[in-house]
């Protein structure tokens, strides 16, 4: 049994950590991604996420499969929330267990990078002055501090 899910309910990270825990695991790394108030000097009031739910869940499961192949003995659970989220709320949780900590740390970071590449989820930032769908943040021009 594995968990790869899109949910419109608040995420309880412990549930996912518990899910990957097992006797062979000496390490569990749980990452939670939260709604950040300030991005490049602009204040976010709240975020709205949407997903292509069946494909998103399938892609997350594929990522979990990639991890379990690359890092032997790992187990993965991933959830992403959709709908409107306030500052500080959990948008994504990734839990990875492994026999030793190094694999769990590495695999966890791999999971979030892959989610940001391929999983069909979109974030809309709502500011005091407007709103915008955010896409491909890696390609955004850097704001220079002058």
């Amino acid at each position: 049994m594995s968990i790869y899910e899109i949910t419109d309910k608040p995420i309880d990270p412990q549930r996912y950590a518990d899910h990957v825990l097992r006797p062979e695991a000496g390490a569990v790394v749980t990452f939670t991604g939260h709604v950040r108030e300030w991005t490049k000097g602009i204040r976010t009031l709240y975020l709205s996420y949407e997903a292509y739910v069946p494909m998103a869940e399938k892609k997350m499961a594929q990522i979990g499969g990639e991890i379990e192949e690359k890092w032997e003995g790992t187990r993965v659970a991933i959830a992403h929330r959709i709908g409107e989220l306030d500052v500080g709320e959990v948008a994504v949780v990734i839990a990875v267990s492994s026999p030793h900590r190094k694999a769990a740390y590495e695999a966890n970071e791999y999971a979030i990078e892959r989610i940001k590449q391929d999983v069909p989820i979109w974030k809309k930032e709502i500011w005091e002055t407007g709103e915008q769908w955010i896409g491909d943040q890696n390609k955004k021009p850097e704001v220079r501090n002058t």
Binding site: G33, A51, V92, K116, D118, I121, K123, D136, Q137, K139
Partner: peptide
């Protein structure tokens, strides 16, 4: 067929 704009999850 779904049109997938650049994704921004996480």
């Amino acid at each position: 067929a779904a049109f997938i704009p650049p994704v921004s999850g996480g």
